[in-house]
Design a protein around this nucleic acid. Structure first.
Length: 478
RNA sequence: CGGGGUGUAGCGCAGACGGCCAGCGCGCCGCGUUUGGGACGCGGAGGUCGGCGGUUCAAGUCCGCCCACCCCGACCA
């Protein structure tokens, strides 16, 4: 931890990740096993993620609310698959105020049940539909193995829960939210994702259909980065969420749920990070431009700091940080802000003042190539333009990397070979849970998704050889 | 829960055969010189050696039990 350089990605990827998260002050280990403290820099990134998602939710008619952390144990038991799926990872509260509770409370692992309970109260008529509510909160799942951001006992997320009059409407909502996640991932986080449907064995406990956005990390492992579920009438029936339709007939609602968590921060780190540290997409970066003043003598300091103030004012439209510490050298600051992934570094020294210019260094292009000297005139436009270029370049680089590592083997032997080298396989697939399990056992690869934009046509299933019209992605995953 | 490993200053570590004052690097604090790619000098602060018990004149050091964490497997956003 005290060495100056990070462990290189190529040497030990998970060590690189662990060091980076901590050294960049994104998060730290909490005193409780598997729990994390999200530090201000990490939380700031999360707030920007929240803002981008929340505005998309609002624009599509959703409203926010807050439901309780505690859920009666019995609620979970009302939906068979749901309880089976979550029972092993529940935290249960049995004592309150010093005395044994009549009914144990679970700390929510997700809120379908308690929200379903409330929807049953609130919904009476088709006129009450649809109900489109989102909640920002935390949930607890007692996981075996944990990693900062990727899998912690407690994590932060948003969970949307909607109720509709028809199956078609619920499916449309499920797909709409998946589209929103995909759009957010690509256009705000520069994380290229593949939207698709989960297989039966990978779907959410209690869902009819689950959709996912899958991303490829820097070690080529897949990360499920957001999910959207069509719950059909499963929860409506379990919780009596019913409405009277136009013909005065009692009907069960059709519900959905969709979530994206702080795990996505892990996706950003592992999609873009390099051996110098984080590389944050400009649209989400807590700090977009860091200004580093450079001076020797007091006289220089005065002049430089004046120029810094002026430049800062020019850049008031951006998230700017001036690093005016005098106890560390500029070189130290360069490294530190690169570690923390700030997209653009702006240097101002005596030479720049003489030239009426500033030096700009792009985080996405290391070294001299990424550095340029630009005039002070029109600096705001230059910076805006450069941030856009960085954002675009990051998406392009990540997309290229991903596509280079997706292969289309023609037989199972080739499939195994690719998986053993951590590549992704895009193959014809005839849905079959047993075969899926066998592949997982033999190769450790799981069916990541059946992508939404299928190439069409027919082919022979990579495993069973049966004719099929669907293709699937297989990969090792987090 | 099975297999392997580690607990000594904030972090990373060193401390033969037990021996008296527990050390090194980084970081931290003070002063001075520095400052365009991780500065340097001098002076400081900081420790229940994971816990409990045992052996011994004497225990980071040997023995036992416990605890915590890490890595590898079975579960997962």
């Amino acid at each position: 931890m005290n060495e100056k350089k990070l462990t290189p990605k190529s040497e030990n990827y998970s060590e690189w990740y662990n060091q980076l998260v901590q050294r960049a002050e994104m998060a730290d280990y909490a005193p409780v096993r598997g729990c994390m403290v999200v530090r201000p820099y990490g939380w700031s990134l999360w707030e920007n993620i929240q803002a981008k998602l929340d505005s998309r939710f609002k624009a599509t008619g959703h409203v926010n609310a807050a439901f309780p952390l505690f859920i009666p144990m019995s609620f979970l038991e009302k939906e068979k698959e749901h309880v089976e799926g979550f029972a092993p990872e529940l935290a249960v509260v049995t004592i309150g105020g010093g005395s044994e509770l009549e009914e144990p409370l679970i700390v929510r692992p997700t809120s379908e049940t308690i929200i379903g309970h409330m929807y049953a109260k609130w919904i009476q008529s088709y006129r009450d539909l649809p109900v489109l509510i989102n909640q920002w909160g935390n949930v607890v799942r007692w996981e075996m193995r944990t990693r900062l951001f990727l899998r912690t006992l407690e994590f932060y997320w948003q969970e949307g829960h909607t109720a509709h009059a028809t199956s078609e409407e619920a499916e449309a909502e499920t797909r709409q939210m998946l589209d929103i996640y995909a759009d957010f991932a690509r256009n705000e986080a520069a994380v290229p994702v593949i939207p698709g449907r989960k297989s039966e064995s990978e779907k959410f406990a209690g869902a009819v259909r689950s959709y996912t956005i899958e991303a490829m990390m820097g070690d080529k492992k897949a990360l499920q980065s957001g999910t959207s579920h069509n719950l059909g009438q499963n929860f409506a029936k379990a919780f009596d969420i019913q409405y009277l339709d136009e013909t005065n007939t009692l009907q069960y609602c059709w519900t959905t749920s969709w979530g994206l968590s702080t795990r996505f921060i892990g996706a950003i780190i592992m999609t873009h990070g390099d051996d110098q540290g984080l590389v944050l997409p400009p649209r989400l970066a807590p700090i977009q431009v860091v200004i580093i003043p450079i001076f020797r003598k007091d006289e220089e300091q005065t002049r430089v700091m004046e120029a810094v103030k002026a430049v800062q004012a020019q850049l008031s439209g951006f998230r700017v940080k001036v690093d005016d510490r005098t106890e560390v050298t500029p070189g130290f600051k360069f490294n530190q802000w690169e570690l923390r992934g700030v997209p653009l570094r702006l240097e101002i020294g005596p030479k720049d003042i003489a030239n009426d210019s500033v030096a700009l260094a792009r985080r996405d292009i290391p070294g001299r190539e990424g550095k340029s000297f630009v005039p002070r005139q029109g600096l705001a436009e230059t910076v805006a333009d450069m941030l856009e270029k960085i954002q675009a370049n990051m998406l392009e680089k990540a997309t290229t990397f991903r596509d280079e590592n997706i292969h289309e083997p023609q037989d199972y032997a080739a499939f195994k070979e690719i998986i053993s080298q951590d590549g992704w396989c895009y193959v014809w697939w005839k849905p079959n849970a047993d075969n899926e399990a066998k592949i997982k056992e033999e190769t450790k690869a799981t069916l990541r998704c059946l992508p939404l934009n299928q190439t069409g046509g027919k082919g022979k299933c990579i495993f069973s050889g049966q004719e099929t019209s669907e293709k699937a992605y297989f990969a090792k995953a987090y």
